[in-house]
Amino acid sequence: MALSDADVQKQIKHMMAFIEQEANEKAEEIDAKAEEEFNIEKGRLVQTQRLKIMEYYEKKEKQIEQQKKIQMSNLMNQARLKVLKARDDMISEMLNEARQRLANVAKDPARYQTLLDGLVLQVSNHLGFHICFTRLMVKDKGFYQLLEPKVTIRCRKQDVQLLQACIQKNIPIYKAAVKNNLEVRIDQDNFLSPDISGGIEIYNGDGKIKVSNTLESRLDLLAQQMMPEIRVALFGANPNRKFMD
């Protein structure tokens, strides 16, 4: 039985509606899948960029921290150098004050005479000749050693008489102790500088070897030997020092 035109049209409409419905469902499925893939890719890109940003700022933070440590180290070094300079300046001022006070030593004739005795007779091993003694006391085993038969002593112009008395007093004691002669000459052509507070300089026979026993040189030597003790007395013990030798 043949279909009428109306039935054909009806079936065609029904098929078209079915196809359209299938197409809409397929389009929705495609849209949903595309949306899902978009969200996944968007999340991946966001996470990747977030990690890059975090890495960038972590690197920046490390750089800033490193710069901070370097700056702190530089500031600490500068502060340490300032402290050391301030300490050295204080010690220099103390030594300068001590040098200024040296002039008072020679103002006491009796005390200065005793000091000259010790300076004239002091042992000078490091220069290869000895014209002196170390404490004439049995418990200290004092001794004389002589390698130079002639010496020249230079002093301040105003100390010539005191030095002559010192030589007259001590040379006989020296000769009796070492059983040897010693010729001592005071250089009255070349006196010590007026800036010297006192003391003497001793030369061997040919003048090539000198012992400086001025008050200033003795102060410098004493300061050098006692510098560790001076620093401890002024600034306290160094907590970072492991060895005391």
Rank of each mutant, 00 (worst) to 15 (best):
Y56W: 01
Y57Q: 01
E61D: 08
K62D: 01
Q63W: 11
I64R: 11
E65Y: 03
Q66H: 12
Q67D: 06
K68Y: 09
Q71P: 02
M72Y: 06
S73Y: 03
N74Q: 14
N74L: 15
M76V: 13
N77S: 15
Q78N: 10
A79H: 14
A79R: 15
R80C: 10
L81E: 14
K82P: 07
K82Y: 10
L84F: 02
L84S: 00
K85P: 03
R87I: 07
D88W: 00
M90Q: 13
I91H: 09
E93D: 10
M94F: 10
M94H: 11
M94Q: 11
N96F: 08
N96W: 05
E97A: 03
E97D: 14
A98T: 05
R99G: 04
R99V: 05
R99C: 04
R101C: 04
A103V: 12
A103E: 00
V105W: 06
A106R: 13
K107D: 02
D108G: 07
P109T: 05
P109C: 08
A110V: 14
R111D: 13
T114L: 08
T114F: 09
L115S: 04
G118W: 15
G118D: 15
L119R: 03
L119G: 01
V120Y: 02
V120L: 14
S124Q: 11
S124Y: 05
S124K: 09
H126K: 10
H130F: 03
I131S: 10
C132V: 03
F133E: 03
R135C: 02
